[in-house]
């Protein structure tokens, strides 16, 4: 491609490194890789993979924005922006009517409120415990000896919601083991776990409020069971994402990269 102006957003999260390449405001390529120990290398590797996916070269990139917890070691980026701002921009890009975001990532979850331009107006964040995070669901998937992707569909096959009272990873694990030992159906326990998380996440909205349209982002948003549980507990309709919800932060970062370059900073 001659004279292409490409922009990259690199979101180095605790579990996954997501990269998005934007050309003329459209997503030209992306990558999702597992985050390893060296966050700088992860970011660079994500960038190369996404460029390859887009059929572009490093020289085509005019501006790079890094986000996520790994943004602090991203010397390849022209600028770093927090994941909170990036998720807002990303969700706005995919669905401009978004006013509330529930973001559930590998190690934290966030409630973000935004205005009609995709600017953050308020937010709350839970990173004190694993409740409502990908890590928590990974542990639970292990207990049931299924893959993470299977958890959501399994929960939809439940016949009743078994109450799981704890969202502390350690206690929830032992609670689950005892429920299984009691002979309860795994699907009913799994939906109970999803509801327990949704209740916990609901607590964040008592601080920031909730307004439609509601967008669900982050790796956990791929879990259809979690999405359904959130809709039931929060009594809201969650919009259908047009792209992989795990990419939202990286999309937002790429949008910011494009705008920053246009404005000359």
């Amino acid at each position: 491609m001659a004279n292409v102006s490409a922009f990259a957003g690199v979101d180095v999260g605790s579990l996954g490194t997501k990269t998005v390449i934007l050309v003329d405001g459209e997503i030209a390529g992306y990558s999702i890789l597992r985050t390893g120990i060296n966050t700088e290398e992860n970011g660079l590797h994500g960038l190369e993979t996404a460029l390859e996916n887009a059929g572009l070269k490093r020289e085509d990139l005019k501006y790079i924005v890094a986000t996520g917890y790994g943004r602090i070691s991203a010397p390849y980026a022209d600028k770093t922006v927090t994941e909170i701002t990036c998720h807002a921009k990303g969700a706005h890009y995919l669905h401009p009517q978004t006013r509330t975001i529930i973001d559930m990532g590998g190690q934290d979850c966030k409630a973000i409120r935004l205005d009609e331009d995709g600017n953050v107006t308020d937010f709350a964040m839970n990173d004190k415990c694993a409740a409502g995070t990908g890590r928590f669901l990974e542990v639970m998937a292990n207990v049931f000896k299924v893959s993470l992707d299977e958890l959501g569909p399994l929960s939809l096959r439940a016949t009743e919601v078994l109450p799981v009272s704890s969202t502390c990873t350690v206690f929830a694990e032992s609670e689950t083991v005892s429920l299984l030992a009691r002979g309860e159906r795994p699907e009913n326990i799994i939906i109970g776990i999803h509801h327990a998380i949704a209740n916990r996440v609901g607590g964040m909205f008592s601080r920031v409020g909730i307004e439609s349209d509601v967008f669900f982002s982050g790796g956990v948003a791929k879990n259809i069971g979690m999405r359904k549980a959130l809709e039931d507990v929060l009594k809201v309709k969650i919009v259908e994402p047009k792209k992989d919800p795990q990419l939202v932060g990286a999309i937002g970062a790429a949008v910011i990269a494009q705008n920053s370059w246009k404005r000359g900073r």
């Binding site: 917890y69 922006v81 927090t82 994941e83 909170i84 701002t85 921009k89 706005h92 890009y93 934290d108 331009d117 995709g118 600017n119 953050v120 107006t121 937010f123 964040m125 990173d127 004190k128 949008v255 910011i256 705008n259 920053s260 404005r263 900073r265």
Partner: peptide
């Protein structure tokens, strides 16, 4: 420290953004 940093940084971005539209769409 890092958890506070992310929150404060996002808050600072939010305040700056009200003046400076550099991260606006």
């Amino acid at each position: 420290f890092e958890a506070i940093r992310t929150r404060v940084e996002a808050f600072v971005e939010m305040l700056k953004n009200r003046y400076d539209e550099e991260v606006a769409v």
